[in-house]
Amino acid sequence: MGRLEFDVAHLLAGGLVLMSFMLLYQDRLFALLNVFALQAVVLALSVSWQAYVQGAPHLYVTAAIALVFKAIVIPVALHRIIVRLGIHREVENVVGVGPTMLAGMGLVALSMVVMLRVTADAYPLAREDLAFALSVVLLGLLMMVTRNNAVSQIVGFMSLENGLILAATGAKGMPLVVEISVAFSVLIAFIVIGTLLFRIRERFDTVDADALDRFRGGQR
């Protein structure tokens, strides 16, 4: 494998992690969606580069799915949801940006250490890819944990799923069926959550997840 292939793959996967960091500090919902769409584009690029390097044409399908759904359909749909719900002015800050970014850096370091140790004798490209993928997954989880707004939690979940796709394409020989089914399951999850959002809004007049807990009369 040439030096160039490796470097480009590295660059794209690193770009994915960078997008995850950018997601972390967006506190406006529209900006969040734009960064998410950008991340999906980078993901599509990364996957098609893998398809080219590995000589696996079916990965182009995966890249196309990522591009169409994650970069276009889902952001546009979320955009319309936000407009219809009238929450585009909402700003949320549960945990400050500084601590969140520090925690994110810690998570990236952790996933590097773990993955590089565990996969010592694996194919180098897959190795780097897996380490970056784990970082993206952890950052997506971190985002879900630090946000209150249901829309941002969905975005966190979707970006977590981007990490999964990156891992799946980095490993050679993952069948196309698995990737397509993962993509569709995410789409279905998106539909379910979107419907749920309107339901929550109808009932509670807000999409702040804390309102649900207040309603449930949970522990204060």
């Binding site: 952790l110 989880l141 522990q219």
Partner: peptide, 27 residues
């Protein structure tokens, strides 16, 4: 029983911290 009455975010955090702890142990 108190675990029954946490907020959604706290449940997510529990999963998150469990995962991070396990990864740390692995590291």
């Amino acid at each position: 029983n108190r675990l029954q009455f946490l907020t959604i975010r706290v449940y997510l955090s529990l999963v998150f911290f469990a995962l991070v702890t396990l990864l740390l142990a692995l590291a």
